[in-house]
């Protein structure tokens, strides 16, 4: 994240402007505050309220349902899926980003990769599930091609439609996302640092271990968190890929939302959603603690 350099002196504390001036200045931000209030905070509040509401007023029953085994396993599945795909995505993505960043900054290759990553990081969803089904589904062309050469792609049963498959597919949009998020950090690495390391007697390993690694760590952790949240909330791919509902939390929410049983289920969905927010909050807190340690040196 780029730090915004703004001095907090002028404009705000003008002796003549007085109170009226300040309030008119605040008015400029009103449309934004109004909109985010209605479409960001109100929904969040509705979720929180919904989680504690039942047909007969306030209740903890919705939250109590979260302890059911299938809900717990959905949460665990979601956590593992997100952590693994975020980690793989972060590592592979930073390698790709490094390859791109060491090339010409205005080159065609960089433009292509960046545009490509822009599409793929957002175009996860349904498209992606189909793409993988067409590639390594039971009738996918790699599977068929290998079959024609006498090789079975799935010697131990098809895993594409399981969590394993989902993890693989998630890396497909996590890697490009990592490239986009991590590239600015790599661009900020100065060649002098490597050269200084070398003149001081350090080799490639020392450079990565003592200089580039620690320098990139805050950005890497931040990007990992983003990737985690991204995978954690991903829904479309799973919905298109998995026939059985409820394997991961977003699917459970979707099932609860579209169930015809009524308000109870809507409140259960809210409880699930609240659970997700809490988990993301916990991960964010852990991240903030790690970040404090890894980014002590950052100007603030």
């Amino acid at each position: 994240m780029t730090a915004v350099a703004v001095s907090e002196t002028e404009y705000v504390r003008r002796p003549l402007g007085g109170r009226l001036r300040i309030s008119s200045a605040w008015l400029g931000a009103a449309p934004f505050l109004l909109y985010t209030g209605l479409f960001l905070f109100l929904p969040t509040v509705l979720v929180a309220v919904g989680a504690f509401s039942g047909p007969h007023g306030p209740t903890l029953a919705n939250l109590a349902q979260l302890s059911r085994p299938y809900v717990v396993s959905a949460f665990l599945n979601s956590l593992v899926l997100s952590a693994v795909s975020a980690s793989v995505g972060a590592v592979v993505g930073s390698v790709l980003a490094y390859a791109v960043a060491t090339g010409s900054p205005d080159g065609i290759l960089r433009r292509l990769v960046t545009a490509f990553c822009g599409v793929l990081s957002q175009f996860g969803g349904v498209t992606l599930a189909f793409a993988f089904i067409a590639t390594i589904g039971t009738e996918g062309f790699i599977v068929i091609w290998l079959q024609q050469h006498g090789i079975r792609f799935y010697p131990n049963g098809v895993w594409l439609f399981s969590l394993t498959g989902l993890t693989l597919i998630y890396t497909y949009f996590e890697i490009p996302l990592m490239v986009i998020v991590f590239m600015p950090a790599l661009d900020g690495i100065r060649p002098q640092w490597r050269e200084a390391t070398e003149t001081l007697g350090g080799g490639t390993w020392h450079y990565w271990r003592h200089v580039a690694g620690p320098l990139l760590m805050p950005a890497f952790l931040g990007a990992w968190l983003l990737l985690f949240a991204n995978a954690f909330s991903a829904y479309a791919t799973a919905a298109a890929l998995l026939d059985i509902g409820g394997v991961i939390v977003p699917l459970q929410i979707s099932r609860a939302l579209s169930s015809e049983v009524g308000l109870d289920q809507a409140n259960f969905a809210a409880a699930l959603a609240l659970g997700m927010v809490v988990i993301v909050a916990i991960i964010t807190l852990l991240y903030a603690r790690l970040q404090r340690r890894s980014a002590r040196w950052l100007p603030r």
């Binding site: 050269e195 070398e198 003149t199 001081l200 007697g201």
Partner: peptide, 8 residues
């Protein structure tokens, strides 16, 4: 570079 013993 790393074995040249030059300070830069």
């Amino acid at each position: 570079t790393s074995r040249r013993d030059s300070g830069m």
